[in-house]
Design a protein around this nucleic acid. Structure first.
Lengths: 243, 243
DNA sequence: GTCTATAAGCGGATAGAC
DNA sequence: GTCTATCCGCTTATAGAC
């Protein structure tokens, strides 16, 4: 079963190099492969939403299967265990998150521009992939019971690199002195919260769900808060009085 | 069974008025009552920790019972359903949270002092009651499946009051203009994260768990970030150069 | 690849004796 | 209040036919 898991996971992830195309086979395997990849992606997407709502133990593979229109026995063909499916969900979240935030907070860029881009990208992720953010958050809140290794290997280095960049800006006198570790935690929290706590926010603002305008306002406030903490923004932007 | 739930829940919450003391009974029921209250509190405390780690569905009542040294059948005597126990956990979290934050962010107080007190209290709650914060966070992330009514009735008004206070300070020109709703969201997130995400923070800082000094540093950074966003703090506190 | 069938266990909840 | 006994449903996972 481990063999099966490996095979499916690799082809699904697009790295199906071990299974070379058989020249003797006339029918193109591309159609089948593509269909499998689509089904695989649908399973992961459905699982992501359900895990975000109910947590790992709160989801049954039968529910996931029902969402994508297959039997739960068939689902185990693609993902032999529930935990394997959960890991694939988190792998996907992490892949996309690291991809989007790559190269931002570059120490050579201007601090202000780098931070603006970073905040924008992170808030955009919260808006476009709230379920992914939530699965991630619940895993962290639970104390990393199933995904500690990957967090340690992939997330922690990324965060440390960003902290180091902040620290260099401070050391070079390009921003006012502040604890870079905790500023990073605050920045992370202030952007993450627009995915994780959006249900409560909607209640406070008396609307069904957050709207694009809310994310624009969030970006303005978070950006201002962070930049001013570093002495990088004008003291009184006062949008009420146009100059 | 509903009858039983009501009775137990009320006495356990300390409002056991319906069961008047029988004058004919010589033995003081106080001992028994006190023991029951202690056991009840132990159950709730154990459940809080487990719910924080594994989520609602991830916890079995047998686990909770084992932690307090009773059988699961006996546990159902105190809490007839798992959901009732979960609600009691959240009730306790909410009670203490509202109690601690009562009167802070008073519109008549100086904005700077009010905000400092509020941030300190909220961070202290994250430090002292991390499990409670985490249970709360997971319920919100899940989309309020079981506790929406209480959030709506008790949390939302509290948040709105704080938003209104911030808005009044802006309107009165006591602080620089900013969107009070989103500033509140950021403030909430920046303090909440020190409970919810502390496991990841510990990994980033390469330590077993957050220490008191970390919370001191957090308080300094969060306070500075918020105050400067409102134009309330000196531009360059620079702790490196004592004046 | 997808199906039927089923194993094997745990979950919450209840009944009733003491 | 605490115990033993038990019900019933749902869970993951596997075996094997097609």
């Amino acid at each position: 079963m481990i063999e099966r898991e490996r095979r499916v996971a690799h082809t699904a992830a697009g790295r199906g190099s071990s299974r070379a195309r058989r020249p003797g086979r006339a029918a193109p395997p591309q159609g089948r492969l593509r269909r499998r990849r689509v089904l695989d992606a649908n399973i992961v997407a459905a699982a992501e939403e359900l895990f975000a709502q109910h947590g790992f133990q709160g989801v049954s593979i039968a529910e996931v299967a029902a969402r994508v229109g297959i039997s739960k026995q068939n689902l185990t063909y693609y993902f032999p265990t529930k935990e394997a499916l959960y890991r694939r969900v988190l792998d996907g979240v992490l892949d996309e998150w690291l991809e989007r935030l790559r190269g931002l907070a570059d120490p050579d860029k201007e601090p202000e521009a780098a931070l603006r881009d970073y905040i924008r990208a992170k808030l955009r992720y919260s808006r476009e992939r709230p379920s992914g953010s939530r699965v991630f958050a619940t895993e962290i809140i639970a104390g990393l019971p199933l995904y500690a290794r990957e967090i340690r290997a992939r997330v922690v280095p990324a965060l440390r690199a960003q902290v180091e960049t902040l620290g260099r800006w401070v050391a070079d006198g390009r921003v006012e002195p502040i604890d870079p570790v905790h500023l990073m935690f605050v920045l992370w929290a202030a952007t993450q919260t627009y995915a994780d706590f959006s249900h409560q926010m909607a209640l406070v603002m008396d609307k069904e769900a957050l709207e694009p305008a809310d994310f624009d306002a969030a970006e303005e406030v978070v950006t201002r808060v962070v930049l001013r903490a570093l002495g990088l923004a004008a003291p009184a932007p006062s949008p009420a009085q146009p100059r």
